[in-house]
């Protein structure tokens, strides 16, 4: 494989990594602050994409679509916290898994009823439809570069929020010393609801950004959810820095292994079979990476300080 293709695939890997980071950051914040595992995080991603795609189709404006997607996911996350998740803080992880699993079933079926079982189309916004020459003579889709840029912005915003604001201070304190935060008179219920809504907004943003690249369809949430699990396991659950490192690692390994394998396998078998084998074997690479990291560091790369 030549170096130009490698560069292109590395950028593709970064695109996936950025989306995974947005998902993983929300998941890991929710776990870190509230000790809740939320399987329905993928459903928030899916709902954000559907809501955003609908608004984009109606208004013709992708920017409005992004806003709508983010707002819809944040709102649904908030509703979810107020009605269901709130009852689960005192329950064990098993109950949380089961309830949020039931939420996935409900969300998938509702989307199927409202939007139908077929994938819906969401095109790249016109301003970003072309490509940019990253180095002279090498074009790369502008939209993907925009995703990477937006992801970096979101990460910077998240860092500012957590490290520099009062809310962020409470979030950090809530992760390590929940009882003390409560004893100091902080309304922990409001804090929890806010964190959940922030997680939802990030998932909605990821879903909307993924829309033009992957199909907007039922089941899209679970695909990315499982990869997000790999990210937080690799990075260390409860740590945003870990989510960042894990997301980039998983994004790069997944994309590069899928890109490299077909060329390797085509030398060994007929091309059509090679592509099927490569597509699936390529998907296996990230899980092997996870197993390897777990064997060395069971708590992930950046374990949370207990």
């Amino acid at each position: 494989m030549d170096s130009l293709l490698l560069l292109e695939q590395t950028l593709n890997g970064l695109t996936l990594g950025v989306m995974l980071f947005l998902m993983a950051a929300g998941l890991t914040l929710i776990f870190g602050v509230m000790d809740v595992i939320n399987l329905a995080h993928g459903s928030l991603y899916m709902l954000g994409a559907f809501a955003g795609a609908t608004v984009t189709a109606r208004t013709g404006s992708f920017a409005l679509g992004v806003l709508a997607g983010v707002a819809a996911s944040a709102l649904i996350a908030l509703l979810l916290e107020l009605t269901l998740i709130r009852r689960l803080y005192a329950r064990d992880h098993l109950d949380q898994v089961l309830v949020t699993y039931a939420v996935i079933l409900i969300a998938n079926e509702s989307v199927k009823i409202v939007w139908g079982p077929q994938p819906i189309f969401l095109g790249t916004p016109e301003a970003l439809a072309g490509s940019v020459e990253i180095i002279p003579g090498v074009p790369y889709p502008a939209y993907r570069l925009a995703i990477i840029g937006a992801g970096i912005l979101a990460a910077a915003f998240l860092w500012w929020l957590i490290a520099r604001t009062r809310l962020g201070m409470l979030i950090r304190a809530g992760t390590t010393h929940r009882a003390i935060v409560q004893a100091l008179g902080v309304n922990i219920q409001v804090l929890f609801a806010l964190v959940f809504a922030i997680g939802g907004a990030l998932a909605g943003l990821a879903g909307m950004m993924a829309g033009p690249l992957l199909a907007v369809q039922v089941g899209m949430g679970e695909q990315i959810l499982i990869l997000t699990f790999v990210v937080v396991v690799v990075g260390g659950l409860g740590s945003v820095r870990g989510a960042m490192a894990g997301a980039l690692l998983v994004g790069l390994v997944d994309t590069l292994s899928r890109a490299v394998l077909p060329t390797v396998l085509r030398g060994m078998m007929e091309p059509s079979a090679a592509d099927q084998v490569a597509a699936n074997l390529g998907a296996v690479a990230v899980y092997l990476l996870m197993a390897l990291i777990l064997a060395i560091r069971p708590q992930g790369l950046f374990p949370r300080h207990a």
């Binding site: 776990f31 992880h93 499982i226 699990f229 396991v233 659950l237 777990l294 064997a295 069971p298 708590q299």
Partner: peptide, 14 residues
């Protein structure tokens, strides 16, 4: 080698 939530997510991933 892991516990709790980690175990849930890892078995799912494998």
């Amino acid at each position: 080698r892991t516990r709790g939530v980690h175990f849930i997510m890892i078995t799912l991933a494998f």
